[in-house]
Design a protein around this nucleic acid. Structure first.
Lengths: 246, 246
DNA sequence: CCCCTCAGCGAACACTGTTCGAAACGAACG
DNA sequence: CGTTCGTTTCGAACAGTGTTCGCTGAGGGG
């Protein structure tokens, strides 16, 4: 090809009589590389930041190239979601501590989701049946059965709790985004305060009287409160401890 | 202007020497008209169908005209959400029946949201504090207090249940969309069946053994199941009936 | 009566997801 | 070794999106 030694030739302008082969067409793109690059963007900028062009740029190529490895953006987002689900730590089920383990599992799930901004929105759009999401669901069901929850309730509860965790993660991500985006958290907290103070107490007496309680507690405390409602409700359905297996 | 009598002149081609005034510049656009038109689109095509151009076309004008009455699309969506919240029927609180009324209120909320496709997504993005949404929250809190639920729990529970209702409405809307969009509901139901059948039972034993329970029940039954978990959990927190007022 | 403000609105900007067609490559086959 | 074939790469283009800019012209206040 060239009598020059590799590496330097790229700094020189191409001789015009040679066909300009721009870049030597790396044939190195792969589903894994795409997902990895997209995960980086997701962590920094959230789902809206993950555009096909953005991910392609990260791999220094064009958007069209991605479509050889991924059907469309929806499929890419599903892959991302399952990749996040892989980061959820799973407990070794212990019949003595099923309630505690269940709570911890879902607190960890919310934390993993929120580490990747608003990725939880993907769980509300399409029921997540990727391999890693399935592992989480399987563990949830194992724990519920260990607690003696009836079969029908186990199946529905897995759905319900998944919904709640996703919704809470989305809300948390949105709040976090607003807090960092709009500069000072101070500014719009004051704005909220003013809005609340201007509320007509004669039209919303209960709401106004509960105002101090409304803003109290961290996001995770509020999440745990709802989770505890669900878990205790499930415990009440339990018919006593139960062995594993069919 | 013209010696013709009104109404007919629009059918004739404009004489070319007169400045073609396209349409006489209706100065009739208003926030209400915009929201009304957008509600129509929302009901038929969901949030993604509500583009600024689409709504403007419905009012036979251009997208830029809307920005005189509405700050941006986010604000428009918030207005739409509150309009939907106005359709939620509110009960007259009755201390004897607070549990039943609470359940009914949130079942009705979900139904109202789902009538407008995926509008519930707006509730997960920005905490809804429009006047009509506030009326629903106020009623929720009144009912919870009537049931003797502690103040802190009332405040947090309103948040939690709102999250759950919205999440369930979004999921229901997505499912409905897929069912009508992908032609036959039959086709992808079979596809799901095949996917489930192909699952390795040794890796997901609990999940596989619960398969029949997973697909059973209507959406609303599943929703009511989770709602009952929450409400009974709240009832357990109650310290006995309590009078209204400070 | 005049002027000035501001709703109306066409055009444009910077994006988005996706498709198309041509090129370039690797492997399999004669 | 040569040719063909399927796949990957990728620039360009298409049909959308939300939003801004600048011009026009009508209505109300002075």
């Amino acid at each position: 090809m060239s009598n020059r030694i590799g590496g330097v030739e790229h700094d020189l302008p191409e001789p015009p009589w040679r066909t300009p082969r721009k870049q030597p067409v790396r044939r190195s793109l792969s589903r894994e590389a795409i997902v990895e690059a997209a995960m980086g963007v997701l962590r920094k900028e959230g789902i809206d930041g993950v555009s096909m062009r953005r991910v392609a740029t990260e791999l220094s190529t064009g958007a069209a190239s991605l479509y050889a490895h991924v059907a469309n953006k929806d499929e890419l987002v599903e892959l991302l979601f399952d990749e996040v689900a892989a980061e959820i730590p799973l407990p070794e089920p212990d019949p003595e501590r099923w309630r505690e383990q269940l709570t911890q599992l879902w607190v960890d799930s919310r934390a993993a989701l929120m580490r990747y901004r608003d990725i939880a929105r993907a769980a509300l759009g399409s029921v997540p049946f990727g391999p890693n999401a399935l592992r989480v669901t399987e563990t949830t069901m194992r724990l519920l059965r260990l607690g003696g929850v009836p079969e029908q309730a186990v199946a529905w509860a897995a759905d319900v709790v998944g919904l709640y965790v996703s919704a809470s993660a989305v809300e948390g991500a949105m709040r976090a985004q607003r807090e960092e985006g709009h500069g000072q958290w101070d500014d719009q907290a004051r704005q909220m305060q003013e809005f609340f103070a201007a509320l007509p107490a004669e039209r919303f007496p209960t709401f106004v009287s509960l105002l101090p309680h409304l803003t109290s507690g961290t996001d995770e405390e509020r999440f745990r409160f709802g989770l505890e409602l669900l878990v205790s409700g499930l415990a009440a359905l339990a018919t006593g401890p139960r062995e594993e297996g069919p």
